[in-house]
């Protein structure tokens, strides 16, 4: 009994610690400006106009559209390119498969820093700066993490089912699209959701390639806003923009909780 109480107090304490920052974010986002500049914790009235004011202050609508474009293209690119590669690494037999797979895995160890100093020159010569192309085009050629994750998932599919389809005369392509893809839907969903989450929140890449006000994504716009309003004490606007930034992810999470949890577990289970 005592233990149950102790356990629950620890759990409740932790829950408060995890939830409180988000609660303060919400409260500050509807805090009237006069109060936002003070140490007040609770808004005296709910200033919903903060949300319209932040759209006036920065082109938040444009940022949302830009971010959605990046997300849509990167998710499409990642799924289209990584599914066939993961299939080749899991259910096709070919010479050198193991060696090439090690090569894929070893690129995961490569810091992005090694690549972007040179990629930047390629993209700038192509005239792609201030466009979403440097962020989206590479995803159409596959990335090591997603390939690895999908391969782990594909390996759990029974080889007999695939062989049965092959015996029936199905080509490898139709084995992939008609048998593997439907069976591996949870794994593909996990990869898609992770890519969406990454692209939505990514700051480093967009910060390098985008500088024009109109070309920014939400992440870069938020950081700029945070820096700009610091002196004016308008943290209520930063927090309103943060809510706009974070809320879609929370909604996705609540609808796709199972996908998240299984996906994360899969990334950690086999190093």
């Amino acid at each position: 009994m005592l233990l149950t109480i102790a356990r629950h107090s620890v759990l409740i304490g932790l829950a408060v610690m995890f939830a409180l920052p988000l609660l303060f974010m919400l409260l500050q986002s509807v805090m009237p400006l006069t109060q936002a500049k003070t140490t007040a914790l609770w808004p005296e009235h709910l200033e919903w106009s903060n949300y319209t004011r932040v759209f006036d202050r920065i082109p938040l609508g444009t940022y949302i559209v830009n971010t959605l474009k990046v997300c849509a293209l990167t998710v499409t690119g990642t799924v289209l390119s990584c599914v066939p590669v993961a299939y080749a690494f899991s259910h096709l037999q070919w010479r050198g498969r193991k060696a090439v797979f090690v090569l894929v895995l070893s690129t995961m160890m490569l810091p992005f820093q090694v690549l972007f100093v040179s990629q930047y020159q390629i993209f700038s010569e192509l005239g792609w700066l201030n466009t979403i192309l440097p962020l989206t085009v590479p995803t159409f050629f596959g990335d090591a993490f997603s390939i690895f994750l999908l391969r782990q998932f594909f390996l759990t599919l029974p080889a007999e089912t695939l062989d049965a389809a092959r015996v029936d005369g199905a080509s490898e392509f139709s084995v992939l699209t008609r048998v593997v893809v439907p069976m591996a839907r949870p794994g593909i969903m996990a990869v898609a959701v992770f890519q969406f989450l990454f692209s939505w929140g990514d700051f480093f890449g967009p910060n390098i390639y985008l500088s024009d006000e109109r070309s920014l994504t939400l992440a870069v716009g938020l950081v700029r806003l945070n820096t700009a309003v610091e002196r004016l004490g308008e943290s209520n606007l930063t927090m309103a923009a943060s809510v706009v930034f974070v809320l879609p992810l929370l909604v996705i999470f609540f609808f796709a909780q199972k996908v998240f949890i299984e996906g994360v577990t899969l990334t950690g289970s086999k190093g």
């Binding site: 932790l14 829950a15 995890f18 939830a19 920052p21 988000l22 303060f24 974010m25 500050q28 989450l197 939505w200 929140g201 990514d202 700051f203 992440a219 938020l222 950081v223 945070n226 943290s235 930063t238 927090m239 943060s242 930034f245 974070v246 992810l249 929370l250 999470f253 998240f260 949890i261």
Partner: peptide
């Protein structure tokens, strides 16, 4: 509840904790 903070993008949690 414990998991939700980790889907908040790092720049957003940075801005949030800066404010906090």
């Amino acid at each position: 509840l414990f998991y939700v903070p980790s889907i908040v993008p790092a720049v957003a949690s940075g801005a949030l904790f800066y404010f906090l």
